Simulated assay, not measured.
Amino acid sequence: MKKEVSYEKDKACRQALLAIKDTMELLSGKWKIQIIGTLMEKGKLRFMDLLREVDGIAAKMLSKELQDLEMNELVKRTVCNTKPITVEYEITDYGRTLETIIIEITNWGIEHRKKLFEKPE
């Protein structure tokens, strides 16, 4: 007997998978979540301060990732009228909607490290 799949379930499944794909493409890579988390924790930061905070990232990569995050309205870039010109970055209200995801990733990572690296008693 052939199993019937309702159109609505199939449509909802496709929409969910597309949403997951979109989210993973936006947040993929080694750096974006670290940049977002840093800006959430530290607040507004100048480019060089952010470069120091995100351990191991190159200036060129940070610039690229910030452009992508700004294009997706997760990060706001402000050019300050100073000599020399400074640029500040901060998380947007829309970017703050990722806070629960960042917290859950952090909590999972802490538990994962415990599981792998701590010796059982």
Rank of each mutant, 00 (worst) to 15 (best):
L66S: 07
S28V: 02
R96C: 08
I33Q: 09
M40S: 12
Q15L: 08
E88H: 11
T100H: 12
L39C: 14
R77T: 14
R52K: 15
D22P: 02
K64M: 04
T38Y: 07
S63H: 03
L51Q: 12
L66D: 04
L45M: 15
K76N: 07
T97R: 06
N81P: 03
W108V: 09
E41A: 15
K42G: 02
A19P: 01
T97I: 01
I110G: 02
F47C: 06
N107G: 08
L17S: 00
D49Q: 15
I102H: 10
K76C: 03
T100M: 11
K30N: 12
I33M: 14
L17H: 00
G43P: 13
K60V: 05
I85R: 13
L62Q: 09
M61F: 00
M48N: 11
K44L: 12
E90K: 01
L66G: 07
V79H: 03
L51W: 10
I102V: 15
A12M: 04
G29H: 08
F47T: 11
R14G: 02
F47I: 12
G109E: 14
P84S: 14
K42C: 06
K21I: 02
I35E: 04
M24I: 13
E111C: 06
V87M: 02
E25I: 08
M24L: 15
S28L: 02
D49E: 15
D68W: 05
R14H: 04
E41C: 14
R96E: 10
Q15Y: 02
K30G: 04
E53P: 00
Q15H: 03
T86Y: 11
R46Y: 10
G37C: 01
M61V: 04
E90M: 01
L62H: 10
R96Y: 06
A58H: 02
K44D: 10
D93V: 09
T100P: 14
T78S: 11
W31S: 13
K11I: 01
D49F: 05
A16E: 08
S28F: 03
K64T: 09
K30S: 12
L17G: 00
C80V: 13
K21F: 07
K21S: 09
I85Y: 07
E70H: 10
T86R: 15
